[in-house]
Write a protein that binds this DNA or RNA. Structure first.
Lengths: 252, 252
DNA sequence: ATAAACCTTTACGCAACGTCAATGTACAGA
DNA sequence: TCTGTACATTGACGTTGCGTAAAGGTTTAT
């Protein structure tokens, strides 16, 4: 079955503008362009659009959705099951909002009293869960299930601010690593700083840091395609460079 | 209890920027400004912010929220109960999304097959319900509970496109009425056109149109403060003018 | 053959803030 | 009293995910 923009739009309930925009940002490319320049979509694109709308529904931004569905290790079945989990989480959160409303109604009727803090509990809960929904998959993709599961509890207890600090640190690691890479020397001051930042970053997840584990995890980065791709994004061989830097960092 | 921006922000989980923005657009004004120009919020503002967040949560745009909570006929208890209804509706919709995901999983596992149309049913359902959430209160405010309840089923079966047609027609009625008003003659061609448009608009809600009911409803407009205010928005006496025009319109 | 209903690209507009920048204020500790 | 830091203020420009023309080419139906 083949569809033009309008046809696909009517099928899915999005606008044609949205489809063109998704084309523009490379999120959903048409199967082909016909001789008159018309966009033609096929079965595969219908399925992909469904995935996109699933994630959009969760409040995931389009850029992240793109990464998720273009990820080589993207397992649509797994994604669907995770998606279901997230929807269920959203429903639980809705339940807490409903409870909050009912409490407010009761308070207004004079049956109970609520202090200011209580009034916003459900909203804050929502903020935290939204963060998890938005970034949970991404983190899982990047760092593997085992680590995620182990550090899950730590993450769950993080505030939004802490989470943003983590994100910032993550960028700093990458930036410093890339700067150090061009020096070519894993023993250089910059490379050692990158290793140190990486240690700090790990400590967000680990309860106790050991040099051996640190070395171990960077070796894993080199071995595992997914991790390697992440660190090699800018410079090919950056994963190996980080491993070497960390080897030196953990020697003394 | 008094709060500065930061304190209120921390209490409620919004940012200080948001509070300043809400001040800027007149959605939530501080209780007072102290001698240094600091915004100071009190109990009343905390409650109002809670209302705002409730509606924001539903996807209502800030401008509409402003109208809702500033409406003289705003009954917070009633609003809360409606809000609860909407949250429950949202949960039902979530359930249908979850069912859709589960169906997709089953389809992927080869247990059943899904055609393209089915894949998007839940999303479309969502679109319709979202429209109800966004405009439901407004419509209820404007036209009273009884009419809303009677026409509820019709509305529920509307598509987004039909809904937008309705909104457009509504504007046309007002525009034509206002133009006709300045002629001063309820028998004029323009005034009769306004009456006709108003009939068309009513037919969106009514299963069977009668001249008596049409006259009746315009008389109600004059009697009921809320309706009168709506039609008198531009020209004082427009509600009466419409009633007179419809009287003539329903004579032949 | 001509209108209606599609399609294209280009480009500006919008809500609801985020994010500086430049500057003023409150208050604790040396 | 000075100073640092954590707060506050008002601009003003940036961002996301599209909406909405504008100006034109294509397909289809009558």
């Amino acid at each position: 079955m083949e569809y033009t923009v309008k046809q696909l739009a009517e099928l899915t309930g999005v606008t044609t503008r949205t489809l063109r925009y998704y084309n523009e940002i490379g999120l959903l490319m048409p199967a082909k362009i016909n001789s008159s320049g018309y966009r033609i979509y096929g079965e595969k694109e219908v399925d992909k659009l469904q995935q996109i709308l699933f994630y959009r529904e969760l409040g995931v931004d389009l850029d992240t959705i793109k990464k998720i569905i273009n990820s080589p290790s993207f397992d649509s079945m797994k994604a669907l099951k995770e998606h279901r989990e997230k929807l269920l989480a959203k429903r639980r959160q809705l339940d807490s909002l409903i409870a909050n409303v009912e409490k407010t109604i009761a308070a207004k009727e004079g049956r109970i009293t609520m202090n200011d803090k209580e009034k916003f509990e459900a909203f804050k809960q929502k903020l935290i869960e939204e963060n998890e929904r938005k970034y949970g998959y991404e983190v899982r993709e990047k760092y593997g299930d085992e680590i995620v599961d182990r550090s899950n509890q730590k993450l769950k207890n993080m505030t939004k601010e802490q989470f943003e600090q983590l994100k910032q640190l993550e960028e700093e690691v990458l930036n410093t690593l890339n700067k150090a890479f061009v020096t070519g020397d894993p023993a250089s001051e910059l490379a050692q700083k990158a290793a140190d930042l990486h240690r700090q970053w790990l400590c967000y997840f680990w309860d106790h840091y050991t040099k051996e584990a640190h070395r171990g995890v960077t070796e894993m980065y080199v071995a595992d395609e997914r991790f390697k791709a992440y660190y090699d994004k800018k410079h090919l061989g950056a994963a190996e460079f980080l491993r070497d830097a960390v080897r030196i960092y953990t020697m003394n």
